[in-house]
């Protein structure tokens, strides 16, 4: 079982350290637009990693992660309006994050018990419905201001521009997501989840506490997504239901993961980078037809690299090694 708890090779550590150093220096070298692109890659790529905590190991594919994203943004934003206006924004953000974590925890636990009993596509649909319900609730009841939207306080830190500041906050969350994911994958839970992904009934029969493992992964994934929502809300400064409860956010997390390669750390990040650069840089200036081209690239990617780019790279690597060792 060395895939689960073998040592992480020194090469990977080295590469990670170089990447991290680069990530810290980037915002001081890039233009604000490029930082904004990087922000989105960190935020949505990081959330795709969080999504994978359940969806990457098993067939429990959530089609409604925007539920937790929106929940976080709304919880922190609405709380900020209730807090003493004299509090500093950083404190408001901190309290809001704690509140959002708590709320996401409760919501995830409450919804997990019924939906985690559903299999395959039914779980996906149930999560979609859950996200729609939360979105509709924020729009239907005026107390949540979801229809007309509401402002969030502006966070300022001396010495950093707003884009740089949120870049670092997203980076922090991104690193947390990766750390939790790597820990999860290497833990007993990750092994259990992989078994669940292969055959849940057999796993349960073999004594793996399937319910508990699924619950842990689901809740972790939900809470980390909610924190993403908090930071995103603050970075926009004004949100409505339409800004944070978006089916396309849910779909994009899956899309990034599948494009890059499911079950890997780098996959969702590569997928996010590819799609964000494609839609906002390459096709960004197109007024028409960019949706069509996005669709075409998407289809081409799925047909040409069904296991994602990471899967493709691995295959190429295996082939090269095979050739080097003189095997066919």
């Amino acid at each position: 079982m060395d895939a689960f708890n073998g040592r992480i090779p020194a090469g990977i550590w080295g590469l990670s350290a170089v990447l991290l150093a680069a990530a810290v220096m980037l915002p001081f070298m890039l233009s604000p637009f490029q930082i904004r692109l990087a922000q989105q890659i960190l935020l949505f790529g990081g959330m795709a990693v969080a999504w994978q905590m359940l969806g990457g190991f098993t067939n429990y594919w959530s089609f409604g992660h925007t539920a937790f994203f929106g929940l976080g943004a709304f919880a922190a934003g609405l709380l900020a309006q209730q807090l003493d206006p004299s509090l500093s924004v950083a404190v408001k953000l901190a309290i809001g994050t704690v509140f959002a974590i708590g709320l996401a925890l409760v919501a995830a636990l409450a919804i997990a018990i019924p939906v985690l009993n559903l299999r395959g596509i039914y779980f996906a649909i149930a999560m979609l419905a859950f996200a729609e319900i939360l979105a509709e609730i924020t729009k239907t009841f005026d107390a949540f201001h979801g229809t007309s939207g509401f402002p969030l306080p502006a966070l300022l830190v001396p010495g950093l521009t707003k884009v740089q500041l949120f870049y670092f906050l997203f980076l922090l969350l991104f690193l947390t997501n990766i750390a939790v994911f790597v820990w999860l994958r290497r833990s007993r839970i990750g092994m259990g989840l992989t078994c669940i992904g292969q055959d849940e009934d057999t796993a349960a029969m073999l004594g793996i506490p399937t319910e508990r493992y699924k619950l842990v992964a689901f809740v972790l994934s939900a809470v980390l997504t909610a924190i993403g929502g908090v930071l995103y809300g603050y970075s926009l400064g004004f949100i409505s239901t339409g800004s944070v409860f978006r089916i396309d956010i849910s779909l994009n997390l899956i899309l990034y993961t599948m494009l890059g390669g499911i079950g890997t750390v780098a996959g969702p990040i590569i997928g996010a980078a590819l799609m964000i650069v494609l839609t906002q840089v390459v096709l960004g200036n197109l007024l028409d037809l960019h949706m069509m081209l996005t669709g075409a690239v998407l289809i081409a990617m799925v047909i040409l690299a069904p296991k994602g780019l990471m899967g493709l790279a691995r295959k190429a690597w295996d082939r090269r090694r095979g050739a080097a060792e003189g095997r066919p």
Partner: peptide, 9 residues
């Protein structure tokens, strides 16, 4: 993903 892409097109 395929049907989503097809819907965009």
């Amino acid at each position: 993903l395929i049907t989503f892409g097809a819907s965009l097109i």
